[in-house]
Design a binder for these strands. Structure first.
Lengths: 214, 214
DNA sequence: CGTGCATGTTACTTGCGGTAACACCAGTCT
DNA sequence: AGACTGGTGTTACCGCAAGTAACATGCACG
């Protein structure tokens, strides 16, 4: 039977693929996203064409690599998001989970956040924005779904939830990126400040000098 | 005297520099951020080494190019931010200004948002995050300053303002990027949804099914 | 045993960033 | 006038990374 054979081969191929991904992981975490295919192949103890046979091109390899980390991070976030607690607590837990992750492994974070690796010479027409990293999009969609199924937002709620999902993720990302670079405060303070923002403190704050209406 | 002479030369050099930047602008807007130095030189009617004499390396050229657009956009945003109107109106005007800009010229937007061009072979150690585009950082700082000088946030207000500045900018950016790709609603609706988020509607919304406390 | 077929290699092409070396054309100093 | 200086421009090259033949090898199946 050739099914068993195919299964064996497939298993072996999958194992090989995992090994290659782990080698790539080590190199990317050491050298950054601009690690060369040669370097990755060398780390894996093989040569370039094998990488290309497994992953098509550099983008394919990086996509596979990103998927692993993205899935892992999304799992943690889902856990924080689905916890049985007050809304504010859940929000803070989710923010903290994300920030703890990027704090613990900034290199992984940086790798995940590169848009599309500059767009290979292949060049696909340059149609619209599409700058955001896949991770951001996925987090945004995930959060949107949670918001929509948990909150009662009235008519147009679905669309509102999606806007908010992507918006909140962007807020978290940008604030986290800035925080990681400057470290102006503790993680807990950052979480609290962001939650305060989402809780409307911006709207509630008093004006400082002149009245708001000119 | 050599001052007049130097002035003449400097003027001529500056004019040349502007011409080169405009040529680079055309190419980058046509081919995207991966436009080659050869292509830019050709568009300007000259050859590569001249570009390198003027801008040092590709990063230098791109930085100069980005500065022009960034300054222009920041000017528009400042105008919306400083308008004599209610806070909510100012916020909406600022959001709308940004979104209108990226809607009108998505290629400029995409160019401005690339982190650091992938990091040249020079490789600078890969220390921390630093993923964000300079534009995002500058917008964040700018907004933080406006928030801090306009709002009374009590003790720790300065730090809070900075967190919020970067957070809000990130929210705007991510939501705008997603919106630009999917166009799920009109610009006005998007602006309204984001402003609602900042105005605490997330905290105020009712739960949908089970109670919040488990 | 030969026939597939996956795995591995070396050696190459193409294209880009960046540079060295040389050529031209103004004014300036003696 | 003629050497000196400094900016503008060129051609031709280096190094390096992505990606691709084309060839070699081990292993199952008929």
């Amino acid at each position: 039977m050739d099914t068993t054979q195919r299964t064996d081969q497939q298993r072996s191929a999958d194992r090989r693929r995992r090994e290659l991904l782990e080698a790539a992981d080590r190199v990317v975490l050491r050298d950054g996203p601009q690690a060369s295919m040669n370097a990755i192949a060398a780390e894996a103890g093989i040569t370039k064409p094998i990488l290309y046979r497994h992953f098509g091109d550099k983008g394919g390899l990086y996509a596979a690599l990103a998927k692993r980390h993205t899935d892992a991070l999304l799992d943690s976030l889902r856990a924080a998001l689905d916890a049985p607690a007050e809304r504010r607590e859940r929000v803070e837990a989710t923010l903290d989970t994300y920030l703890a992750a990027i704090e613990a492994r900034p290199q992984v974070y940086r790798f995940l956040m590169h848009p599309a690796e500059g767009g290979q010479p292949g060049d696909q027409g340059f149609d619209v924005g599409k700058h955001s990293a896949p991770l951001l999009r996925r987090m945004g969609e995930e959060l949107a779904q949670v918001i929509e199924e948990r909150l009662d937002l009235g008519p147009g709620g679905q669309q509102l939830a999606r806007v908010w999902g992507h918006g909140i993720v962007g807020m978290m990302h940008a604030a986290g990126d800035w925080w990681l670079g400057e470290r102006p405060c503790s993680r807990a303070e950052l979480v609290r400040s962001l939650a305060d923002l989402l809780w409307g403190r911006l709207a509630a704050a008093g004006d400082r000098v002149g009245g708001p209406g000119f």
